[in-house]
Computed example of a mutant assay.
Amino acid sequence: MTSTPLAATRPARSGARAVHKGQQTRASILDAALSLASQKGLEGLSIGHLADITGMSKSGVFAHFGSREELQMSVIREYHARFEEEVFYPSLREPRGLPRLEAMFRRWLARVSIEIDSGCIYISGAVEFDDRPGPVRDALVDMVRTWHTGLERAITIAREEGHLRADTDARQMLFELHGLVLALHHDARFLRTPGSVQRAEQGFLNVLARYRALPG
Rank of each mutant, 00 (worst) to 15 (best):
His163Phe: 00
Leu164Thr: 02
Lys58Gln: 14
Glu152Lys: 12
Ser57Asp: 07
Gly15Leu: 14
Ala18Met: 07
Ser3Phe: 09
Tyr211Ile: 01
Glu43Ser: 02
Ser59Ala: 11
His186Glu: 03
Arg145His: 04
Gly55Lys: 09
Arg96Leu: 15
Asp131Ser: 04
Thr54Met: 05
Tyr89Ala: 05
Gly125Met: 09
Arg68Ile: 07
Val87Glu: 07
Ala154Thr: 00
Ala126Ile: 00
Arg106Val: 05
Arg13Gln: 08
Thr149Val: 12
Pro11Glu: 10
Thr54His: 01
His49Asn: 04
Asp142Met: 11
Leu214His: 07
Ala16Arg: 04
Leu42Ser: 00
Glu128Asn: 01
Glu115Trp: 14
Gln172His: 07
Gln24Glu: 15
Glu70Phe: 01
Val61Gly: 13
Leu50Cys: 05
Ser38Trp: 08
His80Ile: 04
Ala51Cys: 13
Arg13Ile: 06
Phe88Val: 14
Ala158Met: 09
Leu191Lys: 12
Arg111Lys: 06
Val207Gln: 12
Val87Phe: 06
His178Ala: 12
Leu191Ile: 10
Leu42Met: 03
Glu84Tyr: 00
Glu69Ala: 09
Leu42Trp: 01
Ala166Trp: 02
Lys58Ser: 11
Arg10Asn: 09
Leu98Glu: 14
Leu98Ser: 12
Ala16Met: 03
Val75Pro: 04
Val144Ala: 15
Arg100Ile: 08
Leu177Trp: 00
His178Asn: 13
Leu182Gly: 07
Gln202Trp: 11
Ala188Asp: 01
Thr149Phe: 08
Met56Glu: 10
Ser113Asn: 06
Arg165Gln: 08
Ala7Glu: 02
Arg165Thr: 07
Ala166Pro: 00
Arg107Gln: 03
Asp131Pro: 00
Ser28Pro: 02
Arg199Thr: 06
Asp169His: 12
Val207Trp: 10
Arg93Ser: 15
Pro90Phe: 11
Glu128Phe: 02
Gly179Gln: 05
Val87Trp: 06
Gly150Asn: 12
Val87Met: 09
Ser91Thr: 11
Leu42Lys: 03
Glu176Gln: 09
Glu161Ile: 06
Arg210His: 15
Ala110Arg: 04
Ser57His: 05
Ile76Gly: 07
Gly195Ser: 15
His185Pro: 00
Glu78Phe: 11
Met173Tyr: 06
Ser196His: 08
His185Cys: 01
Tyr211Trp: 08
Leu180Arg: 02
Gln202Ala: 14
Gly48Leu: 01
Leu36Pro: 04
Ile157Pro: 05
Ile53Lys: 06
Thr149Asn: 10
Ala51Asn: 13
Ser35Leu: 12
Arg106Asp: 03
Ser3Tyr: 09
Gln39Pro: 00
Ser38His: 15
Trp108Cys: 07
Glu84Asn: 06
Gly15Tyr: 14
Ser35Thr: 13
Phe88Tyr: 13
Met104Lys: 15
Gly44Val: 08
Arg171Thr: 10
Val112Pro: 00
Glu160Arg: 06
Thr168Cys: 14
Asp52Gln: 12
Thr193Gln: 15
His185Glu: 03
